[in-house]
């Protein structure tokens, strides 16, 4: 009986030790996990801070670029029109009525053009326009405006039911489209532009393609490696800000296509 009791006591002691070890194990698991959790959240916070910093930097770059665009637009178009108008008005010969009338008419045209250019700049920079009309309508208006110049033919198609993104996202997407279209107008030497909007279940896809001169493999590699800092990089940064992607395909003489995706959420 004594042996039996000692066996029982031993069993209880062993069980208590195992129990204590197990409870310690659970406590250790909890402690380790919480520690890992703190490190993870710190890393997450660092990534978020870095992202916010990049975002701010990108926004400043975008702002800087916008100022440059305004400056160039004023200098190249509005300034030129107003200078010509001033020149014509200065050289009016009031004795020759016909010539004076012609000069005044021409000056009025130039001033009207300057006013129209100013209005266009104002519209293209006004984010309220996107908020009110939405990305789809604003892009459509932009393409119609380009078509009216008579130099380009644009084929605008959409696929799927229109989905509205948040105003902030629509503005960024619109700026990407603007940048792509500006690049075509300035550098591509194209006369045909295809714009396709595809509303997928989870994201919106925007394809802008032209039949211009394109650019070579070397330049694309530079872009991919992030060695160049131009409009393409800005477009890529903006796409990243949307949580989406940007793909560029181009080859010399065969045009360029840009495909942007932006998730709805």
């Amino acid at each position: 009986m004594q042996t039996q009791n000692s066996d029982i006591i031993l069993l209880i002691i062993v069980t208590s030790i195992i129990l204590l070890l197990l409870l310690s194990f659970i406590a250790a698991v909890l402690f380790l996990y919480q520690k890992k959790n703190i490190v993870y959240h710190k890393e997450l916070s660092d990534v978020k801070n870095s992202y916010d910093k990049n975002l701010l930097q990108t926004q400043l770059e975008m702002q800087e670029q916008t100022f440059q665009d305004i400056s160039r637009e004023i200098h190249d178009n509005i300034g030129l029109s107003l200078t010509l108008a001033k020149l014509q008005l200065n050289t009016i010969n009031f004795i020759e009525h016909n010539s004076a009338a012609e000069n005044v008419g021409s000056s009025i045209d130039l001033i009207s053009k300057a006013i129209q250019d100013l209005s266009d700049i104002s519209k293209s920079l006004n984010s309220e326009l996107i908020k009110n009309d939405g990305f789809y309508n604003t892009l459509r208006n932009e393409t119609e405006k380009i078509c009216r110049s008579g130099k380009y033919t644009i084929e605008f198609t959409e696929d799927g039911n229109i989905v509205f993104l948040s105003a902030h996202k629509e503005l960024i997407l619109y700026r990407i489209a603007q940048e792509a279209l500006n690049n075509i107008l300035k550098h591509a030497c194209a006369d045909f532009i295809w714009i396709k909007l595809k509303y997928e279940p989870s994201h919106i896809g925007l394809l802008i393609r032209d039949n211009g001169k394109g650019f070579d493999k070397h330049e694309i590699e530079k872009y991919r490696s992030g060695k160049i800092n131009n409009g393409l990089i800005n477009m890529r940064t903006r796409a990243l800000m949307l949580g989406g992607t940007l793909a560029i395909e181009s080859s010399a003489g065969k045009g360029t296509s840009i495909y942007v995706t932006a998730p709805y959420q």
């Binding site: 996990y33 919480q34 959790n37 993870y40």
Partner: peptide, 13 residues
Amino acid sequence: LIQLFAKPPTLNL
């Protein structure tokens, strides 16, 4: 337990 530690530690255990 293995999978708990394999995943990102987002839970409040």
